[in-house]
Computed example of a mutant assay.
Amino acid sequence: MSQAEFSSMIIGHQDFLRQLALKLTKSNNDSDDLMQETLFKALKNREKFQEGTNIKGWLYTIMKNTFINAYRKRKNQNTFIDESENKYFINMRETEKSVSTDSIVDHKYVMKQVNSIDKTYLETFMMYYNGYKYEEISEILDIPLGTVKSRIFLARRKMMDKLKDYR
């Protein structure tokens, strides 16, 4: 099949693609972009299309995958665009909250409860908390790897028990 024949076959499904793009994006501008990207990918990968197969289904798959990939990319960017007139960029991270008296008291209470845990468990847990790997803790404290894992597990459990009313 020649390039011209393939192009005319794709153009024949342009209305279908436009409706699908609009249904997926719910925006005229985004649907035009999605349609253009789909047509570009279809023309670029013309050799992958096998004659006699359903061109409409092939184009549908390209469009759907392109839309999903774009969605995932936008989702992972962590930046949202305000659609108001000024087009401000909003960073989703919260600013640090000011310290209030209650949070100081709560912090002291939490630290008191954590420090009341047996030192062998707490020492192992704090090393893990500070970024040491299980193997490193095992070597430094000269204890078996299984002991390291169980101490960290038990330290977590003891902390949760002591702070269950706090949650």
Rank of each mutant, 00 (worst) to 15 (best):
Y128E: 08
T66C: 03
L59P: 04
E47H: 10
D30V: 00
I117H: 02
F16K: 07
D106M: 14
L141Q: 14
L141G: 05
K73M: 10
N69M: 07
I81R: 07
D142G: 06
L39V: 06
E37W: 00
K133M: 10
D106H: 12
Y128A: 13
I55M: 15
R18T: 15
I143N: 04
S138M: 12
Y121L: 15
I62W: 00
L20R: 10
T101M: 13
D82C: 15
D118F: 02
I140L: 13
D15N: 15
I68C: 02
I90V: 13
F49P: 08
K64S: 11
M92D: 11
I117M: 03
Q113T: 03
S84R: 10
I117T: 03
K133T: 10
F16G: 05
R72M: 06
K119G: 00
E135Q: 14
Y121K: 13
L59R: 05
Y109T: 12
V110M: 13
V110C: 09
L24W: 02
E37G: 00
L39N: 03
S98T: 14
L122V: 04
L20P: 03
K48Y: 08
T124F: 02
L22D: 02
R93D: 14
K26A: 10
F67I: 00
F125R: 03
Y129R: 13
M63G: 02
Q113A: 06
M126K: 13
M92G: 15
M127C: 07
W58N: 03
L34P: 00
N45Y: 11
N115W: 02
N78S: 11
N78Y: 01
A42S: 04
Y134V: 14
F16M: 14
Q50M: 12
T101I: 13
T95R: 10
M92F: 10
I81H: 04
N78D: 13
T101F: 14
R18K: 15
M111T: 07
I81F: 08
Q50P: 02
Y121A: 04
D82E: 12
L145Q: 05
L17K: 06
I81C: 04
T38A: 01
L141Y: 05
S98I: 14
R18I: 15
